[in-house]
Design a binder for these strands. Structure first.
Length: 224
DNA sequence: GACCAGGCACATC
DNA sequence: GATGTGCATGGT
């Protein structure tokens, strides 16, 4: 069995299915992806509740909202001034290019969409991949601090390796499978939260008996 | 009171 | 290219 798949099955049997991402609509998932930047999810939930209560959880209404009002509603998510600007930039892009329709967006290829999202100010690789995977159902593996923490603790890749190196590890080491990518990332977050805090409790880690391995050298990226 | 949380952009060297 | 810093709330 492929080494990464072995880790996946280990985590899956330990934690069970995660069924990410919490959100009623693809648009809500995209908004959540921006709000959760460097922020605890419980705080994001409060911000999303505020948006819902104000009737602002649609692209059109949110786009028309003055930025100060938007910042006020998302306040519990932290960095509210920055995130209001980032949401606004995403909405400008989303309304102009796709008329506020996630379905239209979905018709484009993963690679093209990823480039477009990365060109939006405030959307970096992790946020772009979260939107692609969880909102648009495109197989783009999400790398976050937890994934890096867990993999580096197990000697698979150096923590300082780049986002793209980490992502290629998954894209090259796994079949391109939406459900697998979806669950695997969520499981890494669970693992990182539970077991790989800065003071690791490796004796209780579900991966403690996984044999260490080194990743194959990363090839130059190829268009998806 | 300190530390952490599902990043990113920008300045500086 | 690598490193440092600002952005901010809320839970533990």
């Amino acid at each position: 069995m492929k080494p990464l798949l072995k880790i996946y099955h280990k985590l899956c049997s330990f934690y069970g299915p995660q069924n990410w991402w919490p959100g009623d609509t693809p648009f809500e998932v995209a908004v959540g992806a921006i709000l959760t930047q460097n922020t605890n999810w419980t705080n994001v939930e409060k911000a999303i509740r505020n948006l819902k209560a104000a009737g602002m959880l649609s692209a059109r209404t949110m786009h028309a909202l003055p930025i100060e009002k938007l910042a006020g509603l998302i306040r519990p998510a932290g960095y509210f001034n920055i995130k209001a600007q980032r949401l606004r930039c995403f909405l400008d892009f989303f309304m102009t290019q796709y008329d506020g329709s996630m379905k239209r967006m979905q018709k484009k290829t993963t690679g093209l969409l990823r480039e477009e999202l990365l060109a939006v100010k405030g959307i970096g690789p992790e946020t772009a991949d979260s939107i692609l995977l969880y909102a648009l159902e495109k197989p783009s593996f999400v790398i976050d601090a937890y994934t890096k923490r867990v993999l580096s603790r197990h000697g698979i890749l150096e923590y300082k390796a780049s986002y793209d190196e980490y992502q290629q590890l998954f894209h090259q080491g796994l079949n391109q499978n939406l459900q697998l990518y979806n669950e695997f990332h969520a499981l890494f977050v669970m693992t990182g939260k539970d077991y790989c805090k800065p003071k690791p409790r490796c004796e209780s880690c579900p991966l403690k008996d996984i044999k260490l391995f080194r990743a194959a050298p990363v090839r130059q990226s190829s268009p998806r």
